[in-house]
């Protein structure tokens, strides 16, 4: 399971989320206001809208399209309409860069 570089830490401000594409797949990488890092699947499980366009509040990402909400720590779908959880992925800070471990 390789660790892949997403971006330097300072390119992802606190309280923000960015899209990361690799090998034909896409993820959402989060840096919370409290400076924790998380990574989930990129697309909402409801209508395939990218969550990097969503609203990040604390540990919740809200899909911009139909207001589905997920917990970025667990991927759990918290509010209608999505019923399927997101997958979450390991993230680390390495030499000032954000990396995710993907298979």
């Amino acid at each position: 399971m390789p660790w892949i570089t997403v971006c330097p830490l300072d390119e992802l401000p606190r309280g923000s989320v960015r899209r990361f594409d690799h090998g034909g797949r896409t993820w959402a990488v989060y840096r919370t206001a409290t400076d924790e890092l998380f990574c989930t699947d990129g697309l909402c499980t409801h209508e395939a809208v990218h969550l990097a366009d969503g609203l990040l509040v604390d540990y919740e990402i809200e899909c911009p399209k139909h207001a589905g909400v997920f917990d970025i720590r667990t991927g759990e779908a918290l509010r209608l309409p999505p019923c399927v959880d997101l997958e979450t992925w390991p993230v680390r800070l390495h030499d000032g860069r954000i990396e995710i471990e993907i298979d």
Partner: peptide, 14 residues
């Protein structure tokens, strides 16, 4: 645009 509109309205709702 969809993203900014969604973020703004999601936030206002909260």
């Amino acid at each position: 645009p969809a993203g900014p509109v969604g973020r703004a309205i999601r936030l206002v709702e909260r």
